[in-house]
Design a protein around this nucleic acid. Sequence first.
DNA 1: ACACAAACTGCAACCGATTGCAGACTCAAC
DNA 2: GTTGAGTCTGCAATCGGTTGCAGTTTGTGT
Lengths: 332, 332
Amino acid sequence: MAATIRDVARLAGVSPSTVSRAQSLPGMVNAATRARVAAAVEQLGYEPNRAARGLITGRTGTIGLVVPDLANPFFASLTKGVQARARHHDVAVFVADTDEDPAAEAGLVRALSKQVDGVVLCSPRASDAELEAIAQDTAVVLVNRTAGGLPGVTYDNEDGMRQAVAHLVALGHRRVAWVGGPATSWSTQHRGVGLRAAAEALQAELAPVGNFAPTYEGGMAAADQVVATGATAVVAYNDLVAIGLLARLHSRGISVPGDLSVVGVDDIAMSRMARPALTTVRLPKQEAGRIAVELLLAVLDDPDAAQGQRLKHGELHGELIVRDSTGPAPQK
Amino acid sequence: MAATIRDVARLAGVSPSTVSRAQSLPGMVNAATRARVAAAVEQLGYEPNRAARGLITGRTGTIGLVVPDLANPFFASLTKGVQARARHHDVAVFVADTDEDPAAEAGLVRALSKQVDGVVLCSPRASDAELEAIAQDTAVVLVNRTAGGLPGVTYDNEDGMRQAVAHLVALGHRRVAWVGGPATSWSTQHRGVGLRAAAEALQAELAPVGNFAPTYEGGMAAADQVVATGATAVVAYNDLVAIGLLARLHSRGISVPGDLSVVGVDDIAMSRMARPALTTVRLPKQEAGRIAVELLLAVLDDPDAAQGQRLKHGELHGELIVRDSTGPAPQK
DNA sequence: ACACAAACTGCAACCGATTGCAGACTCAAC
DNA sequence: GTTGAGTCTGCAATCGGTTGCAGTTTGTGT
């Protein structure tokens, strides 16, 4: 069994209170005593039990992270960012994966909320009302989503889409297909809006082909519909979908970018390994994770800031990375 | 603030003890009382605080998971397996990522150990002695590694490598290069042993090119050395490395599988998306995660089983998935 | 109506920490 | 030698649960 504060106290010949203070308020205890305590701590390899501390202080030094799918590299990177930042603040992270199941979301947050100080919720599918209800009794920071006045970090999807469309239009494309992700996804909606706005501004035509799973399979499923639109370029919800498109287009003998240009979103590691390497809007994923942690810790330090008017919100910008999957529009 | 057991007790008009028992030992409390408690629980959305329970029972219902790199799809899948199984047992999971830093390992486990019942350690780089020391005061289950008599789950690397070599030899390859992963990696060692044994048995020649980072970059870095060996086929430490090889070989104008056949290990999602699609030894990743959880829970239920003689250990088998990156050896 | 067992329920102690408060000690000044 | 201020340290309460033990009901047999 691991050492408790009492074991340390006994060994150092002081009371548990003194041990506790020696750790957290060193100035308050005599240097000689402090040294004895430090020696005992060292000898026993003592680490305070955060759970117990949490009961008293209300701060467990633990946060939760809820993501739709850890196998999606986008969320894996984001998780790494959260991890890294959390460790930097000496905070532990609970990770939960909803498996893209909206129903599991609320339950997971509820289950988590008791054991953590707050939760980072990524790309939640729940309604605004549900999210605000959750935020009633748990500190919440959203990622890839806005809801009510909840603090969060998002990407400027409109701007990213504008970059993508501008790139395609410059290459001579006039008709651009759009493969959306889950219909309830905030990102899908905002990317759709951004695309429509950009298409209008740049006098291109947008051809949405509907909503698909945000996966490789989703892209495979969407490919033929994309071809049927007669578009010369396509923007996919994310890179996974774009790579699925690439695969299906390849097997149908459609050349990329010769016949069709493909643009993704995210810039996951896989994208530069794709053949052809994928042109995509790079989103700073780890950065988003880091900011989410900072936001959450800030909210925890001053809950009123979040409840009141000055809500915190970070917005990150994507950057178009041009690779080999986009090229001049074919001459008809 | 979330509801506590006292709130529920007050609302139901009973004592906290009764609420506690109504939850855990339903048979011990009157049906009518139990119903009142259940209603109160429902109304308040009460969930017991695991941390507090853990102080008494010694079981927090939480386990830790330590992986080298969450951005590596292999570990992402494994994590999903752990998650899923843990949720099934109503156990929460702390995930920590060491960023492939062996020094961080022990520290993370130490930090985790106070807040969890046990830890699943994936592909640890620490020495056997260090691992056994850790296991002294924390229940540990290893994945991709054996050490002392610690319980764990591993893959039969020898058999997987045998399948790969047999496949290559059948295609006429006689000289096979081997790109190893981190030198301290248990998997690297066992795959190396398996390859040597298989090569000897099948009268092929093995050309090891050294140790590389288990990443896409590692593969890029190894490619030219592989070519220099004059081998007609190469087995890579994992799929990430294999895909890195593919990329560098492509840019050097070396045809796969025309000039060189490439085999990976893991079968991550990316592998079937690679061009050419990667032949690889598929390892059941989520399965490993699930088994690790079962093992850990079994150890927790009966610690002596692990300390004593009947140590638990799971071994999984890989399966060669033949895709397009392997073909007949070129005629010289 | 009374005794007695069985079935419930509540009291109080406990887990491992933190922290307000008060007591003990040191030391200097009068 | 007392007094007073200033440090340091320990006592005890507390957090949210769990559980051994004892007390209260309830129901049954006579």
